[in-house]
Simulated assay, not measured.
Amino acid sequence: MSCPACFRGTVHDGEPTGITTKLHGLDTYVAEPASGNPPKGIVVIIPDAFGWDFVNIMLMADNYAKKKDYRVYVPDFMKGTAAQLWMIDTFKKVDAKTSWWDILVKPFYYLKLIYGFISFIIPNRPGKSFPKVKEFFENLRRNEAAHLPVGAAGFCWGGKHIVLLAEGLKADGKPLIDAGFTAHPSLLKLYSDIEKMRIPVSFALAETDNQISLPHGEEIRKIVEAKPEGQKGEVKIYWGYGHGFACRVDTKNDDPKGAVEAEDQGLAWFEKHFEGIEY
């Protein structure tokens, strides 16, 4: 999570339509199927550094629920310690090259960003955060998802947790997740984390990403495509995009096509792997 791109991007326009509740001890955003039909599965979104109440993630949850009749949860796995949105604006100031003043004040902005990064990463490193994620999914499987398939979608920081969940952890003899999707994941141990996966995971990777380079992406592809049936994954490379494209793309000034396609990639993966599951 040391990459600056993890904190760059834009805040999207829109008004989330779901509700906020308390679920298994965590504040959680909930999006229900817009059709009014019973949910045919549950998808849990594990967000990027900006957390569960980042409007971009809430709008994505609404899309998941609307497009495929899923109930979608976005829990506060960070428990109030997500990265602050001012970091996005501060990075824009760091990148600005319009005047001598921009250059003069950059050291101040860099110090501010270092503070923001440390405040986020110390309480949210995987060793501290994954036990909370695992506990939530265990409770979910034993309750709301006792008879429903479960998918998990993770972005940047959340991607690490998707890969860990995919090791095949269980509750009451059932896998915590039936399928996983991750876009531009961070913090992975390459390639041991990938080799341990036993649940099918779909990867949406960027052409330019210092967390996962193109050679890394191709090696991940070889590993997941060589897994046994029922565990095979997939990798799609998004050419012309960088880290964070699936959840923080500038929809006004850049082409949002990659973000839309990545969203549909994840949904198609869940549709494929939810089919025929009965508990």
Rank of each mutant, 00 (worst) to 15 (best):
A166G: 08
S99F: 06
S119E: 11
I199C: 04
W86P: 09
K106Q: 11
W86I: 11
N139F: 05
A65V: 08
F181W: 11
L165F: 09
E195G: 12
K132T: 15
A183C: 13
H184R: 03
V163E: 00
P107M: 06
D102M: 06
L188E: 00
V94R: 04
I121Y: 13
M87E: 09
R125I: 15
S129Y: 13
E135S: 11
V72P: 00
K170M: 15
S99P: 01
E135K: 15
A153H: 13
R142W: 08
I118L: 15
S99H: 03
F130T: 04
N143S: 15
Y109D: 11
C156F: 07
H161Y: 13
I194N: 00
C156L: 07
H147V: 09
I162P: 00
K174L: 14
K66N: 14
T90S: 13
K112L: 14
M58S: 12
I88K: 02
V105M: 12
F77K: 02
A61T: 09
T98N: 14
V150G: 01
Y191S: 12
T90L: 13
K174E: 11
E167V: 05
I88E: 04
V55F: 07
E144K: 02
Y73S: 03
A82F: 06
A96R: 05
H184I: 03
I88M: 08
G80K: 06
E167I: 07
D172K: 06
A171K: 04
K160M: 09
A146M: 12
Y70C: 01
P107N: 04
